[in-house]
């Protein structure tokens, strides 16, 4: 997975947008509210069909067909984290990690890294917004996927967690990972900027 390159060239409502993200690179998507940053992330993840244009994934484990490569390569953490309020945080994290290709040990390790170990027995519903986001981000660390699609990843986090997540993103890039993040505040790591919208 370290020789991974992702190319996307597409045209949706906003404009013609072509870009290529390569292994080890972070890209910050900026733009006004409603410019289409979230939609762009969902298009890359294959959740929303583009009006025109294509997103191509190259070099994922040899050369998988595009849809398989996408499923193999993408992590999406957005405003909706898919965590069930009534279930225990640990159970939800474990399911999400196993579902996206990690294992139990890596889930535990990721929870410790994000400082969540003490919270794992609590139902998700009682966690704060920042704790929920840390739980969602723990999935990124725990299951090995190359392309992180992040929608405002930092917004609910406190300063300490932002610093920590910056460090984690740096490690991901150093392993040859890719990051595509929609942001308003600058990312705590060096990132190329792409402006979305008119």
């Amino acid at each position: 997975m370290d020789d991974l390159a992702v190319q996307r060239g597409e045209r949706i409502l906003f404009s013609k947008l072509s870009a290529r993200v390569v292994a080890g690179e972070a890209v910050a998507l900026t733009g006004a509210n409603g410019a289409g940053k979230t939609t762009l992330l969902r298009v890359v993840a294959g959740l929303t069909a583009p009006l025109a244009g294509t997103v191509r994934f190259e070099g994922v484990r040899g050369d998988l067909p595009n849809d398989d490569a996408r499923r193999e390569a993408c992590h999406l953490v957005g405003h909706q984290d898919g965590l069930k309020g009534a279930r225990a945080a640990g159970a939800e994290l474990e399911f999400q990690v196993l579902w996206t290709g990690g294992d139990r040990a890596s889930a535990e390790h990721a929870a410790a890294r994000m400082g969540l170990t003490r919270l794992l027995n609590l139902p998700v519903r009682v966690l704060s917004a920042g704790q929920r986001r840390r739980l969602a981000l723990a999935r990124l660390i725990a299951s090995p996927r190359a392309l992180w699609l992040l929608d405002e990843p930092l917004s609910p986090l406190d300063a300490e967690s932002r610093r920590l997540f910056g460090q984690i993103m740096g490690e991901h890039l150093a392993r040859g990972g890719l990051i595509l993040a929609a942001v308003h505040d600058p990312l705590p790591i060096p990132a190329r900027q792409i402006r979305v919208g008119a």
Partner: peptide, 16 residues
């Protein structure tokens, strides 16, 4: 409905 509303459906789409 719950999976759709809380985004879990997105996660399920990105699984194996």
């Amino acid at each position: 409905e719950p999976d759709f509303e809380d985004g879990a459906l997105d996660l399920l789409s990105l699984g194996p």
